[in-house]
């Protein structure tokens, strides 16, 4: 872990206990989040991206628990922290924005009370000071400051999502985990929210983990992208590299099956066979092998490792990894 890494996830596994057995939703995942970057975490439903996002704050309760792994945040291993110490981190150092702001805000509490309560839970501050800070933030986020006394239902979806961001900013969070923050927003509101994220990153030096199923959103704002499939990290790299030259066959298929509005793009989309697997009984070896057009016999026997194919472009695929039992030569990627 280098100094420019804010959060380092090492060999993380998260299990869900269900009636049909233990489901390993995230298996042996490692990921670095660099200071000041917007990292897009993409994948389809059930791939483990939200589970990973929650694990960063150790938010799992009930049937879910972290089975293994290390969580290094700003030089500290959060796995060694007590619940009370974690509470000091959540909200204050790591902020969260979820998909549906209506369920994240208390419907019978004015938004100012919510913000003020959050600030005062973490810092000694008078109500007046908290209010003043909230008003400044609202102005910055493009909400008229008198709206601060509104209830959540009086605001539009885009405004509510800005309120959620203001909570993270109010406490100077170092990292914001935004899980599908624009999924319930209309396209113009979404685009403006993404602009805002970019501006805030510059202004406040925020680091943002943007979890989304929308490849277009990642292409629009992310610096780097991490692709998950069925609980595994499939590929990680700079956004230009991954979109220009995707290495994992899943990423390749995914990028070609996403509708592109540009009229110069082809009129037909790539059709990926099959559907994401049920993790109660995941495929053996590489979990993508049953859908993979380049699958070799080894792919169903052994899982590959996430390793650099070229520079900082990591891929989890036997095509790029050596093994004595491998049936095909390893693909060398030129830098």
């Amino acid at each position: 872990m280098t100094d420019d890494t804010l959060y380092s996830v090492r060999n993380l596994s998260v299990d869900y206990t269900t009636r049909s057995g233990t489901v390993r939703a995230v298996e042996n995942v490692s990921l670095d989040i660099k200071r000041g970057e917007i990292l897009g975490l993409v994948g389809e439903s059930g791939c483990g991206k939200s589970t990973l996002g929650k694990a960063l704050m150790r938010l799992h309760t009930g049937p879910a628990h972290i089975a293994a792994g290390e969580l290094w945040f700003d030089g500290r291993d959060l796995m060694t922290y007590s619940e009370e110490e974690m509470r000091q981190i959540r909200g204050a150092e790591i902020g969260m924005v979820f998909q549906d702001p209506m369920t994240s805000l208390n419907p019978v509490q004015r938004v100012i009370d919510h913000i003020s309560e959050t600030i005062r839970t973490h810092e000694p501050s008078s109500e007046g000071m908290a209010r003043q800070r909230a008003e400044e933030l609202f102005e910055r986020l493009g909400i008229r400051s008198e709206r601060i006394d509104d209830y959540p239902h009086q605001m539009s979806g885009g405004m509510r999502q800005r309120v959620m961001i203001s909570l993270a900013l109010a406490l100077h969070a170092k990292l914001v985990v935004a899980d599908e923050p624009t999924t319930s927003l209309d396209v113009i509101v979404e685009a403006k929210f993404l602009d805002l994220l970019r501006e805030l990153r510059e202004e406040f030096g925020l680091t943002i983990l943007l979890i989304t199923h929308n490849i277009g959103v990642v292409a629009e704002v992310a610096d780097r992208v991490a692709v998950m499939y069925a609980g595994h990290m499939a590929e990680v790299g700079n956004v230009e590299d991954v979109f220009d030259r995707p290495l994992h066959p899943y990423t390749q298929g995914l990028l070609q099956s996403v509708p592109n509005i540009s009229l110069t793009e082809a009129d037909s989309l790539y059709r990926m066979g099959g559907e994401p697997p049920n993790l109660v009984n995941p495929p053996s070896g590489c979990r993508f092998h049953p859908r993979c057009p380049s699958a070799m016999p080894i792919c169903s026997r052994l899982a590959p490792h996430l390793q650099p194919a070229v520079d900082e472009h990591l891929v989890h695929c036997w095509l790029y990894e050596d093994h004595p039992e491998k049936e095909m030569p390893t693909v060398k990627v030129e830098g």
Binding site: A191, N214, E220, L255, S262
Partner: peptide, 22 residues
């Protein structure tokens, strides 16, 4: 509306401003 649609290509990031309000 057309300008706001995110394009799955980081080389084509939107630069034009969008209408105010909702």
């Amino acid at each position: 509306l057309l300008a706001a649609v995110p394009v799955p290509d980081p080389k084509e990031r939107r630069t034009v401003p969008l209408p105010e309000g909702e």
